[in-house]
C-alpha cells in the first residue's frame, strides 16, 4: 500500500532519525512511503490559537495536496495528526468553512473534498499492517526488555475525532513492544501529557510535567520509553538534561519505529541511532539476545 508521508516542521529538523526509522520499518513491512512535497506547517498550536479559518486552511491545503495524489496521509507527529484530523472533521461538517478554504486552494488548482484519510503511524502499524504481520517479520526478538509506552495527547484524544485507540487505556504501543519481544510496563499517569507545548510559555512548568512522567516511568522499573510523536520524544529526552538532573540515571527515549527496527533486522544506521541524545544501545542491544 502507498502512503504519503507528511513530516511536519519539527521531525525533519529536530528528529530525522524518527523519519528515517519510520520509512525503513514501514517499507520493510510492505508500505510504500512517498514524500508529500510542497507542504506547509499544519498550523498546530500557534496559528490554531490565532484564527480558526487560517488554521483550517493550513491543514486543509495539506489534505488537498494528498487528495490530488489520491493517497492517504501518514502523519508521524501527534500534533500534526491532531491538526489534520480535527480540521478534516471541521471541513467535512461545515460547508461554509470548506467553501472558504477551497476558494483559496482553487488558486493553485487544489480542492478539498474530504476524499483522503489521515492515518497516524500507530493506526498504520496496528490496523493497516497488523500485529500478526509484525510478529512474523521479527528476526531478532528482544529479550523481554521493559519499555514504558508514552502515547502523547493528540494521538489518542479526542477519541471521537481521531479514532486511534482507547484514550483512557491505550494499548497499541504496548502491543507493539510485546510483538517484538519486549515487555510493556504500566505506570501511573500513562495518558498524561509530556509537557512539551508548555515550553513556549513556561519552561519550568513544562519541565515539572515532563520530569513527573520520567519519575513515574523510572519507578515502574522501565528500561526505556517508546514514543509516537516527535514533540513528546524531544521533550522527554530534553527534560532529563538541564538543572538538577545530573545525578539521574538517564532513561533512553526511542520513537517506536526506532525500537521496532532492530528486531526486524534493520541496520542501526538506517535508524539514526547515533543521533539519539540519550544513547539507546542499552535497549537495542537486547535485540536477538536470549532471555
Amino acid at each position: 500500500m502507498d502512503m504519503l508521508l507528511y513530516r511536519g516542521c519539527t521531525t525533519p529538523v529536530r528528529l530525522p532519525a524518527y523519519e528515517a526509522a519510520t520509512i525503513a520499518v514501514l517499507e520493510k513491512l510492505g508500505v510504500n512511503v512517498i514524500e508529500l512535497k510542497d507542504t506547509n506547517c499544519c498550523g498546530a498550536q500557534y496559528v490554531e490559537s490565532m484564527d480558526r479559518m487560517a488554521f483550517a486552511s493550513m491543514s486543509g491545503r495539506i489534505l488537498a495536496l494528498a487528495e490530488r495524489e489520491e493517497k492517504d496521509i501518514l502523519a508521524i507527529c501527534g500534533a500534526c495528526s491532531g491538526s489534520l484530523k480535527t480540521n478534516k472533521h471541521f471541513l467535512d461538517h461545515d460547508i461554509r468553512a470548506r467553501d472558504e478554504v477551497n476558494s483559496l486552494l482553487a488558486e493553485e488548482g487544489l480542492k478539498y473534498s474530504g476524499k483522503v484519510r489521515v492515518r497516524h503511524l500507530l493506526q498504520v502499524l496496528a490496523e493497516d499492517i497488523g500485529f500478526d504481520k509484525i510478529e512474523r517479520a521479527v528476526v531478532k526478538p528482544y529479550n523481554g526488555i521493559k519499555m514504558a509506552a508514552h502515547y502523547g495527547c493528540h494521538v489518542t484524544r479526542p477519541y471521537e475525532i481521531v479514532h486511534v485507540d482507547d484514550p483512557e487505556n491505550p494499548t497499541i504501543l504496548d502491543r507493539l513492544v510485546e510483538a517484538v519481544g519486549g515487555q510493556a510496563v504500566d505506570y501511573p499517569g500513562k495518558t498524561r501529557c509530556c509537557g512539551g507545548p508548555m515550553l513556549a510559555m513556561d519552561e519550568d512548568v513544562a519541565t515539572t510535567i515532563g520530569l513527573d512522567k520520567i519519575d513515574n516511568v523510572t519507578k515502574a522499573g522501565a528500561d526505556g520509553i517508546v514514543t509516537a510523536c516527535v514533540f513528546c520524544d524531544i521533550q522527554l529526552t530534553q527534560v532529563q538534561f538541564g538543572g538538577g538532573t545530573s545525578d539521574r540515571q538517564k532513561i533512553p527515549v526511542l520513537p517506536i519505529t526506532q525500537f521496532l527496527g532492530p528486531a526486524l533486522g534493520l541496520d542501526e544506521d538506517m535508524l539514526g541511532v547515533e543521533l539519539n541524545k540519550i544513547d539507546p544501545h542499552s535497549v537495542i542491544d537486547c535485540c536477538g539476545v536470549s532471555q
Binding site: H154, P158, C193
Partner: peptide, 8 residues
C-alpha cells in the same frame, strides 16, 4: 497545553 484530558 491543548492535551484534551479535560475534554476526555
Amino acid at each position: 497545553l491543548n492535551c484534551r484530558m479535560c475534554e476526555e
